[in-house]
């Protein structure tokens, strides 16, 4: 599609300028709420809902510019919440890579009677709203004695995941069959074909599954709310709750907290975006 941006084309420059204008306008629109959130995190509480709104991050011009951030880091147990969130999200993401690479590969490449029905089941169960299954889930976790541990937030991720299974099934299916057939002729077992031939090729897709799982688990609220009890186990979203009281919320602290809790995700995105982008390059290996 972009081959039309070839430099020696007469109207290429115009096209480029129009392209940039469109992208820039959309980027401004899309970043606005984020900028608003950043500015609010540098405001005093009484200025948050002032009208017409002010865009001055007032605290930056005082002698305590990072007051809201300092309060979060020093007065609350945010370091602990951060560590917990990082641990849970990391483990759950690893679990997803493990479970869905096996599952996705089997669905794509291994024959088993009824496997398509099984796949349909994995997909369709993702439609059930968590609100109605969460209480039974809670009772199951309690029965297993897992309440107030990280297990309920991690173990299920090692077993099943609709998004990852679907994505990797598509990915493995797009890889050429010839490689596997060649290895089979050489006497490789089905597991060796998976492990030595296809899994390395799938590396970008695995990274993508990892990142998405990490992001989703980082934001998860309802399950930690019900499954965790002790302050030492709380995750970041639970920690952010402490800025909301019965009738009012400390919006400046909430915004600062939200900015901080987004940072790890931004970093992970930046570190892995190259892989995320290649994650779907099924045919890429063909060429």
């Amino acid at each position: 599609m972009t081959a039309n941006l070839h430099p020696n084309r007469g109207n290429a420059r115009v096209t480029l300028i129009v392209l940039y204008a469109v992208l820039l306008i959309y980027a401004v629109v899309t970043l606005m709420p984020f900028i608003w959130m950043l500015i609010t995190s540098f405001k005093e509480p009484r200025d948050v809902f002032k009208l017409p709104p002010s865009f001055v991050p007032k605290l930056l011009f005082t002698d305590h510019p990072f007051e809201n951030y300092v309060e979060i880091w020093t007065q609350r147990d945010f370091v602990i919440y951060f560590r917990n969130s990082a641990f849970v999200s990391f483990m759950a993401a690893v679990g997803q890579v493990f479970a869905t690479s096996l599952g996705g590969y089997a669905f794509a490449r291994l024959d088993l009677p009824g496997k398509n029905w099984l796949f349909a089941l994995v997909l369709v169960t993702a439609f059930v709203p968590v609100e109605v299954t969460i209480i039974p889930e809670f009772l199951i976790m309690r029965g297993l004695g897992w309440v107030d541990t990280f297990l309920p937030l991690i173990v299920p991720s090692f077993l099943v995941g609709a998004f990852g299974t679907f994505m990797l099934r598509e990915y493995f299916a797009s890889l050429p069959r010839d490689y596997g057939d060649a290895a089979y002729v050489d006497g490789a077992t089905p597991f060796q074909i998976f492990w030595k031939v296809y899994l390395p090729l799938a590396q970008p897709a695995l990274v993508a599954v990892f990142v998405i799982a990490f992001i989703n688990n980082w934001d998860e609220l309802l399950r930690p709310l019900l499954f965790l009890n002790s302050n030492e186990l709380k995750t970041v979203p639970l920690g952010l709750m402490s800025f909301v009281s019965q009738y009012e919320a400390s919006w400046t602290l909430l915004m600062a907290g939200s900015v901080i809790s987004t940072l790890p995700l931004i970093i992970i995105y930046m570190l892995t975006q190259k892989y995320v982008l290649q994650g779907f390059v099924g045919g890429g290996v063909k060429g």
């Binding site: 089997a106 099984l118 994995v122 089905p190």
Partner: peptide, 11 residues
């Protein structure tokens, strides 16, 4: 089939 079953066991 056995491999498939093992692979799909977690799922």
């Amino acid at each position: 089939r056995i491999t498939a079953l093992l692979f799909l066991a977690p799922t």
